[in-house]
Design a protein around this nucleic acid. Structure first.
Lengths: 228, 228
DNA sequence: AAAGTATTGTCAATAAATTAACACTTTGTG
DNA sequence: CACAAAGTGTTAATTTATTGACAATACTTT
């Protein structure tokens, strides 16, 4: 039973029957439960979670139920238990071996992003095609040449490639990653990768996010003009 | 006729009847049309756009029709015209005055992000609460103290605030931005801002994006295990 | 210039996502 | 301990989003 859904904006075949709409809400539940835990709150109802997260209580109950009945009628959810369960569901109970391709501003920002290693994503190496950057230090890693990348991925069992490259070379690099057996790609380049394997692609398209703001600002102003 | 939809993951009242699902596809259409234009292609059909973008031809035609009949039966769409129209719709024919709050890695990456100024977003200033960072240079701007921010926004007519701050202080800063009359917020902090005004909020929650990858990787592996 | 082909705009049908409703269970209380 | 209150899991209803179908229209070719 396969069906097609979207990830990021790419399409991909999905094998599980959990919709991406649900999956994308899970990290938020996890984050808010972490906050509650931090405040020593032991139990929480879907209604309370609704107030906090802005999702409807009904949706929260339905989402959580995709993975099991974590709650108890008349009581609600045990915060710590649910937090841990969500962590497991999200795959946060293990670590991932990653490399960054592109030692520019974005690559450096990701390398130094606090939540990154905290969440179990271990940076093993940084690569760049610009000879001037090779040998530079990025968070304790000497930037390596692209020629070394394939062997490095295989030798170190790298699972996730983080593409912080300019638009142009990105598709080719992604293909190399896939050929070397990488399992997931976090793509910051403003392109949609065309890869036929079952690799996971998660896009962060900053320019699209930016254009959404400008659209909404413009719309807001148009509507204000109309009112007058 | 108002209804509620999502932006990013926040909810907000929307006044226009264009759904966010449509709005989020517009930047992609714009990007691909730019590519076509770059390759001196003069006309394109919804079918061809479908092949390129991965959306269905039907969806593309319906999306574009929200804003007007840009195509011609039997011919298709004029690439340049449609590109320009989309640029106007997306509000790219004007510039926006912006500031960055938080001169860490993310703030610096955004400041130096090529597409940023290219798309009409003009950086006017950078702020940070850390006294050690004040006076540092970020893309030609001396980092200023948070105390100066309010006056700066008002004096310079800043429209967009870009939050690259750590989780903790972000909500307060966002409130200050709104009080100073900012119109849009591009939020990179891992929090959901609670603002009651009609300010536009666009979230870039990197940790949620990351957790989505780890979820999908885990799911992929679980399914492979099952097969065996 | 007529015939055939391509392709849109739009409405209808389908699918997906969200919300509402409620039976049923546990908790807390007098 | 009995009873009201709280709150889940789950099914049904509703809303939203996507896809399909086709009449209408403009190109293209002979």
């Amino acid at each position: 039973m396969n069906f097609v859904i979207r990830i990021g904006v790419e399409r991909m075949e999905r094998l599980s029957n959990i919709s991406m709409a649900v999956v994308r809400r899970l990290p938020k539940y996890h984050r808010y439960l972490g906050d509650l835990l931090h405040h020593d709150i032991l139990r929480v109802s879907s209604q309370e979670l609704s107030r906090i997260t802005g999702f409807t209580a009904s949706q929260i109950r339905q989402d959580l139920n995709c993975f099991g009945g974590f709650g108890q009628q008349g009581y609600g959810y045990n915060v710590e238990e649910l937090y841990n369960e969500l962590g497991n569901i999200l795959g946060l109970s293990r670590t991932y071996r990653t490399i960054i391709i592109g030692a520019g501003n974005v690559g450096r920002a990701i390398a130094n992003y606090t939540y990154f290693e905290e969440s179990g994503f271990i940076l093993y190496g940084v690569f760049d095609s610009n000879p001037k950057k090779i040998g530079d230090d990025v968070k304790g890693h000497k930037v390596m040449s692209m020629d070394e990348m394939g062997k490095f991925i295989i030798d170190n069992g790298i699972e996730i490639g983080i593409l912080c490259t300019p638009k142009e070379g990105t598709q080719k690099i992604a293909e190399t990653l896939v050929n070397c057996g990488i399992k997931g790609i976090w793509n910051f380049a403003p392109v949609d990768l065309k890869l036929d394997s079952d690799v996971i692609i998660e896009n962060v398209h900053l320019s699209e996010s930016l254009f959404t703001i400008s659209y909404l600002l413009k719309e807001r102003e148009d509507l204000k003009m109309k009112k007058k």
